[in-house]
Design a protein around this nucleic acid. Structure first.
Ligand SMILES: [Mn+2]
Ligand SMILES: [Mn+2]
Ligand SMILES: [Zn+2]
Ligand SMILES: [Zn+2]
Lengths: 211, 211
DNA sequence: CCTTGACATAGTAATTATTACTAATTATTT
DNA sequence: AAATAATTAGTAATAATTACTATGTCAAGG
């Protein structure tokens, strides 16, 4: 494992976040830190803000579509931001209560919405994470049924909701039309694609599983 | 008001989002649209995705710290994304229910968290939005009590939680130390800053209001 | 028809925030 | 002290998005 050194730069960065009320951006902090460490580099500030948030000394705040911000407050809390001036304030209630009650008065915001994002590990990634020992066997075992061309065709089909033609697929992939129709035929035989209408193809449940 | 023309480019963009299952990014859509309109420009795709989401024909999805994505589904729903591969899926329950019940099985994600962001208009912006007619009077009325130097000093003080010295403020602003101490004295007389200890200054409630 | 002005476009340049790279520096372990 | 590991400043590069510019399209109104 990697050893974490509390360097002078890191101490000053931490101190400056602590001194600052609110949710400063990396460049704002840089401007301030420069006053104390005139030779520090912006890259150092960025790198250390990242590292400090990884080791849990600060929190990284990623508000959608905006610059990252950093937070000295480690207690669990949510945030509210202004659509107009983009300032960010703390909020200490949970969503439902919040929206229901008239407690918006408390912080003075006129609330127009709320974005909720869950995150975690998707089924595919969970599957990918499991096998660690059988590197080569896994590869040869799973792919023995699908060659790269078939896989490419299947992947292309998977991303469409409506049935599409071989030409469509050829356009989406690096394959030629002839190659595509050849692969489609073979995939259809295996039951991985279906043809709801002449020249129209669509991935099947089995096809999705095979991917 | 601005007139919205449904151009060919816009039709193709809309159609391609509709055909695509999931939450495509601008560049992915561009790659596909190019197959149909080889001369379209990436800037046109970006511009129109923005406009189409403004007029409500699609939804813009801004997942924190990542590329924007677009969604043909207009019904109200939330999203879940994978920390590892960054794929995004729909989710149709509300936060609390979701986390409580074991319904994560349903979508197969291993949920590790949830980000909640409220947004709206902050008190300051609400205030700023009100006066529209008295442009010049507002300016002269509010600022008659605070000159730019005082305002600068006050703003610097406001952003600190701990009391700080005149030197601190001088470092943060474009002002010289002498100027700062002169302004601090005058601000203190007006009750806009307090001095909890010799050489240490701190903004007062009145000072915050004056800003 | 022909002009006028609003809207849109392709192509490109510029911007912004962030990350990657590199050689030098500093701290830690042997 | 020498070897190793972590960190740094400075700079280059990247990625996504937006701004700019000259050109093109279209729908009235005379
Ligand atoms: Mn906070
Ligand atoms: Mn969706
Ligand atoms: Zn995943
Ligand atoms: Zn605001």
């Amino acid at each position: 494992m990697k050893f974490f050194r509390m360097t002078n730069q890191r101490e000053v960065i931490l101190e400056e976040i602590g001194r600052y009320k609110g949710h400063p951006t990396a460049d704002l902090l840089y401007e301030r830190i420069k006053k104390k460490l005139p030779h520090i580099s912006l890259a150092t500030v960025y790198r250390n803000l990242e590292i400090l948030s990884e080791v849990g000394k600060i929190r990284k705040l990623e508000i959608s579509g905006r610059q990252k911000r950093f937070d000295r407050e480690l207690k669990e809390h949510n945030h509210i931001y202004c659509l107009q001036c983009h300032r960010i304030d703390n909020i200490h209630m949970v969503s439902e209560q919040m929206l229901a009650s008239g407690s918006e008065k408390e912080i003075g915001y006129k609330i127009s919405g709320c974005r909720i994002e869950f995150f975690g590990i998707c089924p595919e990634c969970q599957r990918k994470n499991k096998p660690q020992k059988q590197n080569e066997s896994a590869d040869s075992h799973v792919t023995c049924k699908l060659n790269t061309r078939q896989r490419e065709v299947l992947a292309a089909l998977e991303s469409y909701t409506t049935p599409c033609t071989g030409k469509d697929i050829a356009a989406m992939t690096s394959l030629e039309a002839a190659q595509v129709s050849c692969q489609l035929a073979s995939l259809k035989k295996k039951g991985l694609v279906a043809s709801p209408a002449r020249w129209k193809y669509k991935i099947t449940k089995a096809g999705k599983d095979a991917l």
